[in-house]
Design a protein around this nucleic acid. Sequence first.
RNA 1: GGCGAUGUAGCUCAGCCGGUUAGAGCGCGCGCUUCAUAAGCGCGAGGUCGUAGGUUCAAGUCCCACCAUCGCUACCA
Length: 555
Amino acid sequence: MPRKILVAVAWPYVNGEPHLGHIAGMNVPADIFARYHRLMGNEVAMVSGSDMHGTPTALKAAEEGVSPEVVATRYHEIWSKALSDMSFSYDLYTHTHTDRHREVSQELFLGLKENGHLSEATQSMPFSETEQRFLSDRFVEGTCPHCGHESARGDQCDNCNRTLDPIDLINIRSKRDGSTPVFKDTTHLMLKLGDFQKQLEDWVSSKTEWRANVRNQTLGILRDGLHDRAMTRDIDWGVPVPVEGYESKRIYVWFEAVIGYLSATRAWAEQRGTPDEWKKFWTEPDGESYYFQGKDNVSFHTIILPSILLGNGGLNLPTDVVANEYLNIGGNEFSKSKGNAIWVPDFLSRYEADPLRYYLASIMPETSDSEFTWEGFHAANNNELVATFGNFVHRVLTITTRNFDNAVPTPTELDDNDKAALAACDTALEEVSTAIDARRFRDGLRAAMRLARYGNQYIDTKEPWKVVKTDKESAGTSLWVGLNVISTLRTVFYPYLPTSADKIHSMLFTDSDILADGWNRRDIVASTPIGTPLPLFRKLDDSIIEEENARLLGN
RNA sequence: GGCGAUGUAGCUCAGCCGGUUAGAGCGCGCGCUUCAUAAGCGCGAGGUCGUAGGUUCAAGUCCCACCAUCGCUACCA
């Protein structure tokens, strides 16, 4: 019975290009997970899209003097291409400015209203008279009442770190034009999160296999008790609120962004001509769903999204919320403003996706922040991919084609070493499978690379390049075993390095594709022709370290 | 301030319910090999397990306090 796996990837807000920090924590693990499950024969839908309605996007548009849609669409296209160039296998990468998304968002919003989970509340907010609009907390600044810092934000003081309410700010002013806002009452619809307190507690408590940061952080929030939270905003860019009297407001962007997972699954099902297929993942009891994103997003996926789903009823809660920490560079977060960022399109103009996927998976910030360095990328590429994995594949294929007329040799009786090598293949399949299914991606990669090292040890023991001169049958058997190891490496590396796995496949086999072979050690058949071996990976010159570090400082 | 996570060899990380000389990969040193993109294999040197207490026959592994880093703290997406 195939499992039904929804791979839900966080929705980036599109006001810039993707950098390595973005993809390391969400897209890379999600794609490994999705590819693994497809190879296992499970039913997979991997969906995501661009969050078009983020405030930063609207802000950037205002700066440029164009409509938010222009900016959002521009960066959506850049993101789509970059994700595709990274070989991320989305079944659908859409965006939130579609009719389908608006309909589904409004439908769930009204569902909550009909079920009595929305309430109205009036609050006093800063209002700009010059712009005739309400200013969200990030658009006002003033003097901190606690420490006297002169440019405290509306929600928090950057100097003393205390949480603030904009009404407490001394000398409050608009960050947009410096004018002094007035405070005006505004009414919003609030989601009564408290309605779901008990259900959420029971649900999260039962999820003992979740990562510690996700589970404990959520339990901590629940322990404090949930309060109503506004689900509408005084802005004009976003999904209209489908309620009379709210024509000038929009649905809170986080509300509709997390609904994107559902609207995108439905859009995917429609596009493939099976409009009800989304239900496999969302309403059938054995549908599984995995949400990949950064550690700053946890509560939106463990509190708000589940509340929306519970409040509508009949929709599956997340099986797991896989939150990663951050990938840093130079000891800091990737930051556009500080100039220390490596952009995906730029990276891919000089290097290939697979080595990057390898390095990012090997340093994936699963338990704590990790650090991208060019030295590390260079070393991972040259010492591990080229020297260990690529070289093993290349040396076995080369010896084989040169001595056995470009075809798979016929094995004779297997000795203990041969049997151990085949057993190592099965062990690797088992270990990588267990690790990926448990969302331990670094572990899985290590287990895969262990098989490549084992292959080198085996071949060194057997010395077929030497034995072939005296005992061709014996050398042929060793190479046949080596080819089995290569075939298995193709499988266990496929989730991590899909392009390289495809290259191996096309050198070993002429029929079918990797997916058709499943998560198994496909037997190597004697006499099958083998293509000319080509290196899997390109060795990088030492000079790139200095070049890239200089480039980083220069931008 | 409150909540949460993290802190183990130069680097990236394993160490489950506490129990022989704390492990792996990469890097580094030495040796072997030369089929292979000068790639491979073997051996070895590196750690008072963030700090300071406590519990215990025994603690990296449990308890307390503290320090550092990161996230959240409900209107940043």
